Computed example of a mutant assay.
Amino acid sequence: MHSIEFEAHLKDGVICLPATYRRWREDRPVKVIVLVDDETHHSPLRDASQRLSAILDISRRCAAAPELDPRGANEIIGYDANGLPS
């Protein structure tokens, strides 16, 4: 048995192998050890707090943006004689 080392990011619970190792056959047995850097690991609560902060920041920027088109939604979309958007 030999070992390889590479850095990766989890995406939907999946770690992708670098291209160099993707030629390995699909059913090859492997042993996996995951090391997490304590400096970059955040608790789910902190991550949720950061996401909320980012969402609030975006909403503040949107609210502060100038109005570029003073027309109302009904006027912008427009409706036909049957009340459907035209």
Score class of each variant (00 low, 15 high):
V14F: 04
G78M: 09
H41P: 01
Q50E: 15
S86W: 00
A64E: 13
A73I: 13
E5Q: 14
A48G: 10
Q50Y: 05
R51M: 12
A63R: 10
P18G: 10
E39M: 01
I4W: 02
S3Q: 06
R23N: 02
R46C: 12
D38A: 15
G72K: 08
P70N: 03
A81V: 07
V30Q: 08
R23V: 10
I33H: 06
H42W: 09
V14C: 00
E26S: 15
A63K: 11
N74M: 06
R23H: 07
E26N: 13
R22Y: 04
I58S: 07
A19C: 01
L84G: 00
L10Y: 08
K11Y: 05
F6Y: 11
D47Q: 08
A64T: 01
R60E: 14
K31G: 02
I55M: 07
C62Y: 07
R25F: 14
L52V: 07
G78W: 03
P18F: 09
A65D: 04
A73C: 08
T20N: 04
Y21H: 14
E26V: 14
S43V: 08
G78I: 04
D57H: 13
S49I: 10
S59M: 14
D47Y: 01
D27H: 14
D37I: 00
G72S: 11
R61G: 10
S49T: 11
E5A: 06
G83F: 02
P29W: 08
A81C: 05
I58M: 13
A73Q: 07
L35S: 12
P29M: 13
D47S: 10
L84M: 10
H9A: 09
D12N: 15
C62L: 15
S53F: 08
L52Q: 09
V34C: 09
S59N: 11
Y21Q: 13
P44L: 07
D12F: 04
I33K: 09
V34D: 00
I76A: 12
D12V: 00
R71K: 05
S53L: 11
T20F: 11
L52R: 12
E75W: 06
N82I: 00
L84H: 01
A19L: 12
M1K: 02
H42L: 15
I33G: 01
S3E: 11
I15W: 03
D57F: 06
L35M: 11
S86E: 14
G83C: 03
E75G: 11
I33C: 08
I58T: 09
R25T: 07
V32M: 08
R28H: 14
T20R: 14
